[in-house]
Each structure stands twice: as structure tokens, then as C-alpha cells.
């Protein structure tokens, strides 16, 4: 693993995509869970390079390993074999250096903390001063349109607002990499559309690298610069689709032929990778 990290500045040989500004580099990564019913091949021979400032979506049916892959990047799971580097470090080093912000499927706000205190949680863990914590909480809550809700407790907010607070929490320590695991999966479509627009605006403002797990094709196409299509048993990448819809996307873009063409290709990829027989 450290080899891969050392290779990097010289530029990895034999790869077509320029990795000089690579954030994540995954080579031949496999992960097998040993269960009582035998081994489960969660990830099989995954290769992926993510560049700085990209918005990458992992899409695929449940069980395709998209969340597992995200968790490997976050060092919440360990790969069985293969190489992976995050910002030139091993995932563990990256985690210990707090190089990424992680947004979970549920807001995972601590119910005994106010919204502001929830956003401050990582800052407290990192030992920032109270003044710095307050300033950052204010700033990032305003960024996700939650100004004025600082002193509310999580249960006083709607599901969409709670998830926005959790995004503010992930952004509060300004990580350059944002890992999002189906963050809007539990929300209704209207709220989800709105949050997608906000997330895109946020990404345009901050230019962070985002890895976004979803099982919604429109969501993936609308948000991403590239879409990674995955399939289950064993979890693997079957297609990587460029999604060159440009910046300043609005929800109307979903009616354009270009959007529909990309969505069609994602759908075909998913169909090809997914056997409905088993």
C-alpha cells in the first residue's frame, strides 16, 4: 500500500488518466467477508482513480458493494487484498489525519446535542477553541440554509433539515474529501430534489471532491461528473460513465436529451450487471 503512495509523485505508469491531482487510487481491490454461510465476495478486483474536485457517484442495486467500497475508503472496513490510497496515504492514515468528512444514510445526529453542538462535535474532538467552534458552526449551518436553527434539538427538525445539519457537520472541519453514503435515500422525492440542487451549489462553491453513493439513476446523473456503475455477487465495477453536463445544472436539465442518454447508459449498465435469475 505504501508503495502505491510513494509511486504517486512520479505518476503511475501504465495508466491512461493523469493522476497528478489524484485523490483516491484503488487498484485490484477485493474484500471478502467470512460469514457462517461461507465467504461473501463484497468487492472483487475494483480499480478506480478519483481526481481532485470530481463528483463521483457509485450506483448499483443493493448488495453491489457500493457502500462497502465507500467504507473501505473511509477505513471503516479493511480490504482483503489490493491497494488503495487516499490523498496519497493509506485509508487508516487518512482517517487518523481526519482527511474526509462522512455523511451517513441517516443523519446520525446525537439527540442530546443542539444542532449547533452537533456541528461542533468533530471540532470538539479535534480540540478547537470555543470561539473557533462557534464561528465554524455558524458558517456551515448558514451554508446549508440552517441559520436560526442553532439552538434546536434534532427532533425539532424535519428529516431533510437533519440531513443538512449532518452535511454541515461533515463540512465543519473543512475536509477536502466528502464521502456520502445514500444521504438522501430516506427522504421523499421533493425534498431530495431540493437537497440535490443545494448539494450541487455547495459543491460548486467549495470544489471539494465528493464520492456519493446512491441507487437513484436521476440523482446520480444530475449530480455527478462521473458515474461508477456497480453490480452484485461479486461486487464489481462494470462501467464508468462520464457525465459531462457542465456546471450550473438546474433540475430542468433532466428533460434534456443529453441527460436522458446518460441515464439510459447507466440503466443499461445496471441491467447488464444484474441477473434477475438469482
Amino acid at each position: 500500500m505504501s508503495d502505491a503512495a510513494l509511486d504517486r509523485p512520479a505518476g503511475p505508469a501504465g495508466r491512461s488518466d493523469g493522476l497528478s491531482d489524484g485523490v483516491i487510487d484503488i487498484r485490484d481491490l477485493s474484500l471478502t467477508f467470512q460469514t457462517a454461510d461461507g465467504p461473501v465476495y463484497a468487492l472483487s478486483h475494483v480499480d478506480l482513480a478519483v481526481r481532485k474536485g470530481e463528483f463521483i457517484s457509485f450506483i448499483g442495486p443493493s448488495g453491489c458493494g457500493k457502500t462497502t467500497l465507500l467504507r473501505v475508503i473511509a477505513d471503516l472496513e479493511q480490504a482483503s487484498s489490493g491497494q488503495i490510497s487516499v490523498n496519497g496515504l493509506t485509508p487508516e492514515e487518512a482517517r487518523l489525519n481526519r482527511q474526509y468528512g462522512y455523511v451517513f444514510q441517516a443523519p446520525a445526529l446525537y439527540p442530546w446535542r443542539t444542532i449547533e453542538k452537533n456541528v461542533m462535535l468533530p471540532l470538539e474532538v479535534f480540540g478547537m477553541t470555543a470561539a473557533e467552534r462557534t464561528a465554524r458552526a455558524r458558517k456551515y449551518l448558514a451554508l446549508v440554509n440552517l441559520a436560526g436553527f442553532e439552538q434546536k434539538f434534532p427532533w425539532q427538525l424535519s428529516g431533510g433539515m437533519q440531513q443538512r445539519a449532518s452535511i454541515a457537520r461533515a463540512l465543519s472541519f473543512d475536509p477536502q474529501l466528502l464521502l456520502m453514503d445514500e444521504p438522501f435515500g430516506a427522504l421523499d422525492e421533493i425534498v431530495r430534489d431540493k437537497l440535490n440542487e443545494q448539494l450541487l451549489r455547495l459543491w460548486a462553491e467549495t470544489r471539494k471532491t465528493v464520492i456519493f453513493v446512491t441507487h437513484s439513476i436521476p440523482e446520480a446523473v444530475f449530480l455527478s461528473t462521473r458515474i461508477v456503475v456497480m453490480s452484485p455477487r461479486p461486487g464489481r465495477i462494470i462501467d464508468i460513465i462520464d457525465c459531462d453536463l457542465g456546471d450550473n445544472r438546474s433540475l430542468d436539465i433532466r428533460e434534456t436529451p443529453r441527460f436522458l442518454a446518460i441515464a439510459q447508459r447507466v440503466r443499461e449498465g445496471l441491467r447488464a450487471g444484474h441477473s434477475y435469475d438469482d
Partner: peptide
């Protein structure tokens, strides 16, 4: 605490005491 709440602390590299 559920897995997500614990994982969150892990992503912050929070100590056992924290």
C-alpha cells in the same frame, strides 16, 4: 449507541475517552 453514531466518532479519530 448505534453503529452509525460509533462510526462517526471513528471517522473523527476520537479517542476511547472522547
Amino acid at each position: 449507541p448505534d453503529t452509525m453514531q460509533l462510526d462517526l466518532m471513528r471517522t473523527y479519530n476520537g479517542s476511547v475517552a472522547q
